[in-house]
């Protein structure tokens, strides 16, 4: 509760939350309210922003505002799914390594180190290309390459907490290892993991943006990264084709990052 009040009294964090709520509302209701089909040709190709199309048109003459409103859905969906996958893998690996210790810990940390060395974007590119780009392969490949930070954090928390008295007490009461890991230790180590999960959503959205920009997004969906990639050759003649989708991605990730910082400050009174 105290944490909630600290968060609410932090103007920067509140600004981030307001921004994110506004963006989500725009993505949910925007396409219907705006009423222009993102695939319709509304004007001459590459026409500058005007009253008709406030963000201008792309290389085929499609309304960019309509595409921005629709394209954010894929970005947000992939970002959240990938972050969930990444955090689940990270917390499981970190929890098992920190709780079990010994040889299991050593092996799991070697695996973590391996995934840290692997150039994440290139690996995801290979996976997506070999298994065909789709919402599922993109989200999975992002999740599989980006869990190492969370794993290290979770391991540190488990190492710190597992020797404390309340864990001893639970063990004395005959709780199973599974129960101790997930019901006793995990809730107490939540604070840093929540921050890490929030930032993971932002990072995954950027990652999705990068893959789509390179042409490795789901070919059936509009996304902000894909719009930037498709219009990149027209950048010098038509700045609006690239600027607006990029600005949308930037502001969305920025709002998530500000919320993450706010949660961090609220949960950790020292900083």
């Amino acid at each position: 509760m105290r944490a909630g009040r600290t968060f609410a009294s932090n103007p920067v964090a509140l600004a981030g939350l307001t921004m994110l709520v506004a963006i989500v509302l725009a993505l949910v209701f925007g396409p219907v309210l705006y009423g222009v089909d993102a695939l319709d040709i509304v004007n001459a190709p590459l026409s500058a922003p005007d009253a008709e199309a406030p963000f201008g048109t792309d290389y085929l003459g499609r309304d960019i505002l309509a595409s921005v409103l629709l394209g954010g859905r894929a970005t947000l969906l992939v970002g959240i799914t990938a972050a969930l996958i990444s955090v689940s893998i990270g917390v499981t690996v970190g929890a098992v390594a920190g709780y079990a210790g010994g040889r299991i810990d050593a092996v799991l940390m070697r695996v973590t180190e391996f995934f840290q060395v692997l150039p994440a974007l290139l690996f995801a590119m290979v996976v997506v290309m070999l298994f065909r780009p789709s919402l599922v392969t993109v989200a999975l490949s992002i999740g599989v390459v980006s869990w190492t930070g969370t794993a290290r954090l979770a391991r540190a928390e488990f190492l710190r907490l597992k020797g404390l008295e309340f864990v001893e007490a639970a063990r004395a009461e005959g709780a199973t290892d599974l129960r101790i890991v997930f019901r006793v230790i995990l809730p107490n180590g939540m604070a840093p993991l929540v921050v890490s999960a929030t930032l993971a959503v932002g990072a995954a959205m950027l990652f999705e943006g990068g893959l789509s920009f390179l042409g490795l997004g789901d070919p059936n969906l509009i996304s902000w990264g894909r719009m930037i990639g498709q219009n990149r050759s027209y950048l010098l003649d038509a700045w609006w084709t690239v600027t607006f989708p990029g600005l949308a991605l930037f502001l969305t990730v920025l709002s998530v990052a500000l919320i993450g910082d706010g949660i961090n400050d609220a949960l950790d009174p020292r900083s």
Partner: peptide, 21 residues
């Protein structure tokens, strides 16, 4: 915070627009 949130391919294009165009 801004450095974390900015998509690098987009900032690249914005710099290109400003300092090469």
């Amino acid at each position: 915070v801004a450095g974390f949130a900015a998509p690098v391919f987009w900032t690249g294009m914005m710099l290109l627009l400003a300092f090469a165009s």
